[in-house]
Design a protein around this nucleic acid. Sequence first.
DNA 1: CTTGACAAACCGTCCAGACGGTATCTTTAT
DNA 2: ATAAAGATACCGTCTGGACGGTTTGTCAAG
Lengths: 186, 186
Amino acid sequence: MTEAHRRKKQPEQVRQQLLEVAARLSHEQGVAGITLDAVSQAAGVSKGGLLHHFPNKLALLDGLFDDLVTRFDREIEAAMAHDPVAKGRFTRAYIDVCFALDPTTDVPGWRMLTIALIAEPHLKSRWRDWVSRRSAEFAETDASTGCVLARFACDGVWLADLMQSHDLDAEARAGLAENLKALSAQ
Amino acid sequence: MTEAHRRKKQPEQVRQQLLEVAARLSHEQGVAGITLDAVSQAAGVSKGGLLHHFPNKLALLDGLFDDLVTRFDREIEAAMAHDPVAKGRFTRAYIDVCFALDPTTDVPGWRMLTIALIAEPHLKSRWRDWVSRRSAEFAETDASTGCVLARFACDGVWLADLMQSHDLDAEARAGLAENLKALSAQ
DNA sequence: CTTGACAAACCGTCCAGACGGTATCTTTAT
DNA sequence: ATAAAGATACCGTCTGGACGGTTTGTCAAG
């Protein structure tokens, strides 16, 4: 045994570090890069250490999910605070946050999670919960066809970013966002 | 050695069978179900036989991709043939084909491929090619913001189907499709 | 002195691909 | 027409490595 674990104990910090590294790894190495070995090693922790914080891999993904969704929620909240008009407010915030994602830096962090979202029934249902909670919460203001449509289009753009299938320059993106916001008002 | 390989040789048939089985397996067992062992066994072929037709796993995915995209193209072509109006014709066909997918039967076949599309750089670039070829081809008739928007919304709905995140009944889907088609005309 | 926070070695499984073989099909030379 | 000579289409086994998870041990803090 080395002396490595004589270092100061800082569980919360290590936990956070593990999540960050997991996100970064999925960014750099693709989905396959996110293995228990790789994550723990890159985080400067042993595999046992990782498994102490997250009892299995799914728990790690769950943590990642929580992290990103919480951040997403906070950004939406912040965007909504600036919007005086009630009708379509949530949708406009959704648009803003989605389009504010920098395709080269922010999106990769979501890539792995998206795949897990499609593949893992457990995460799938958690996302489903998020969607239904949100759409129930804003049923009064954001249930119009225009709003629903605008949000679907956002998802489409997001998918395009993930797949890098369309190259939209900044102007094109801004134009799209404007049009979507117009849709959210009708 | 058994007598198994004394059967009549029918390379094209076996190849097709392998692709079908691969699609079916990814449907039934999820993404993890699509292993060389599982596919070959379910197709009644040895692993060696599978690897004869597809030298590696990526090649198998490639074949699957070709298959599905070809089918997709054909359906779009067919839908376009019924549409007398040039402006937005491709987009309307795209809408029709996307919304015609039965979420419970057709979509699962795409699930695995979508994941591969996000994860595998090679397939990602192939899809990128498809998109850019198509959008160049129909730049005259389908480059308006409305059309682009409508197609992005289709992608969003498709993603929602994959994740089963929204439950849209038939009417809601039909309504969305109508609205999108209206967008494609402006 | 007990519990939480790690380390390090280890295990069982799964899986992609390699390999060496055999049977059937096709072409070519006679 | 036919037989030799490949070429193609498979079969079945083996292996090396990756990976998720377990176990056992060691400190440090409260």
